[in-house]
Simulated assay, not measured.
Amino acid sequence: MPTSPADDVISLYQNHADAFARLRGTTLIERAWLTEFLARLPVPSPRVLDIGCGFGVPIARHLIEHGCRTTGVDTSLPLLARAQAAFPDHQWIAADMRRLPLMEPFHGLIAWHSFFHLSPEDQRPMFNEFRRLAASGAVLIFTSGTGLGEAIGEFEGRPLYHGSLDGAEYRDLLEANGFQVLRHVKEDPACGGATIWLAKRVEN
């Protein structure tokens, strides 16, 4: 049984997939950031890993429409089933991002409004996973909170957990794992107030 809101995140998205799909909608407020992400990918027809892909709309759909060979990972089987039905030529994997399977390195990694559902303790080792999954020159984009701590929202009447490190620690973890920060905006007003990191794998 879940013992804290952090433990309950997976079951929330598993049990309320329809509500999430309805509330998420299809408007691509992330377009400007995705345009920059796509422009920086190191090869044509890049392999991109969407971590916490949900039902594949609108982000994975946008990547696919721009020529990315997309692999989506999520823990919600109902959401993955929607993605598989909509985009059968791409790969959709049921897995916890903290325990991702062995995969060929990707040219792009995206964890948009998913990585921040992990506790600070679980976020730190994820940067080693990003390094493992990133080809040389790969681009990483993710959203975070604005400072070290935890925040509890609400989804379908249940607490919805968010965790964050502070900016200096994110920078240190990225650098220690061979990533250079290309751009970072805190609470971007043009993107719904999201705090966004864009980085590139510079170490072979």
Rank of each mutant, 00 (worst) to 15 (best):
F87P: 11
M1G: 07
T26N: 02
Q123D: 13
D166S: 12
L49A: 10
A138H: 10
C191H: 01
D8V: 08
I196A: 09
D166V: 03
M1Y: 06
L160P: 09
G54E: 00
R40Q: 14
E169T: 15
R82S: 10
W33Y: 08
V181G: 00
G25A: 06
F37R: 02
A17V: 00
D122Q: 15
F155P: 13
Y161T: 09
D96I: 03
P101I: 08
G178I: 01
R131E: 13
E129L: 12
D188Q: 04
P189R: 03
R99H: 14
R22T: 15
R22L: 14
L140D: 10
G54Y: 00
I110H: 09
A6M: 04
F55H: 15
D74L: 09
V185T: 12
L173W: 05
G54N: 00
Q84F: 05
F37H: 02
Q180F: 10
D188H: 00
E104N: 05
A81S: 12
D89C: 11
A135R: 03
F130V: 15
P5S: 10
T195V: 02
I59T: 14
I93E: 00
G54V: 09
P58W: 10
L133Q: 07
A199W: 04
G157D: 07
R171S: 12
C53R: 06
N204Q: 13
R22Y: 09
Y13F: 10
I196R: 07
N128S: 14
F142N: 11
T27V: 12
R47K: 08
E129C: 07
L49I: 13
A190D: 12
G163L: 01
G67V: 07
A194S: 14
D50F: 04
F20P: 01
V57C: 06
D89H: 14
V57F: 02
G149P: 12
Y170S: 01
P5F: 03
F115M: 13
G108M: 01
R47S: 04
F179Y: 02
M126I: 06
S144K: 11
H107F: 00
T71W: 00
R69N: 13
A6S: 15
G193M: 03
F130A: 13
F155W: 01
F106H: 12
M103L: 14
E30K: 06
